[in-house]
Amino acid sequence: MKGTNIIIILLSILSIAGIILFFTQRSKVSEAHSQLANKVAQYELLEQEANHLRSTNGSLLGSMADLSVVSKTGAESIKQSLESLGDQYSFIQDLTKKVQAKDSLNLSLVMNLKRSLGNIADEDVKVEVRGGKVHISIADRLLFASGSARLNDESQNVLNKIALVLNDHSELDVMVEGHTDNIPIEGNCVKDNWDLSVRRATTVVRTLQDDYFLSPQRLIAAGRAEYAPIADNSTDAGRKTNRRTEIVITPQLDQFFNLLESPALAN
């Protein structure tokens, strides 16, 4: 009887142990399934990321190929632009040097003319630079009698001194402008102030050519009448100032336009 009880107890223990082992193994299997499911999910996620990276990489490769073409075209365009800028910079430098040279020449002309005209009163002859040109303004009384286009004896002294300087600069053009006040001219020799101003300019130009040997190709005669005053014509002093002859020294026009011509136009 006692032996039977021991056997029953042993069987009970084995049964309990089996049950415990069963549940333990079942828990491990469940955990393994869970881990496997997690691994599968991770794999799928990694696969998706890999597909995305492959797609992105393909797009980048395509973009790089396009960029290579664009870069070559862009590089060539930039090169051409830099070359053009270099040409323009050289042109600007050259133009600046020529403008500086012209300014230096104008300053030299002014100094030489003032030195040559030193014994003539400043109020009768004024030498200055205006608009990039040298202007010699000669009072009416030094060259002409009132209302006349014939040079007086004193004019030779003035024109001789000016011609000495002009002959040293044969590359420059010389324009002679006649100016009057606004009082209408009266007389049989001239029709009006236009006529008087042009005749006076022509007389001076002819004298510079015939007596002082300036090339006629350099000379220009112009009449401005009363329409370019430098003083108030409503006063006697103003009208006296406006009655003048101006000799304008300027670069030859073809050289002047060549000076301003850009490299693109020059080619």
Rank of each mutant, 00 (worst) to 15 (best):
D94T: 15
N160C: 10
D181W: 05
S146Y: 10
I162P: 01
N112Q: 15
I185P: 00
D124S: 13
I183R: 13
G178A: 09
D94N: 15
N112W: 09
E154P: 01
D173Y: 12
D168A: 15
S137R: 12
A139L: 06
H169G: 02
D140C: 00
I136H: 09
E186R: 14
L164Q: 12
D122P: 02
L113E: 03
S137K: 09
L143H: 01
V165E: 10
D103N: 15
S116W: 05
I120E: 01
D181L: 02
T96L: 03
L113R: 02
L151R: 08
D124L: 15
E128V: 03
E154D: 04
K98V: 07
L172M: 12
L95C: 01
Q156K: 15
S170H: 12
F144A: 00
I183S: 02
I92R: 09
L143R: 07
Q156G: 05
L143Y: 04
L113F: 03
A149F: 04
L109V: 02
S146L: 02
R115A: 11
K97L: 12
L159M: 07
V134E: 04
V134K: 06
Q100F: 11
N112D: 15
D124K: 14
L172W: 03
P184V: 00
L164D: 09
V129A: 01
N119T: 15
N119F: 12
T180V: 08
L143N: 07
G187Q: 03
E128L: 06
L166K: 06
R115G: 12
L142W: 05
V125S: 02
H135E: 10
L142N: 02
L117W: 02
V158K: 02
D103K: 15
A149G: 15
V174N: 06
E128I: 04
Q156L: 13
K161Y: 00
G178K: 06
K102R: 14
V165M: 04
E123I: 09
I138N: 07
E177N: 14
A145T: 08
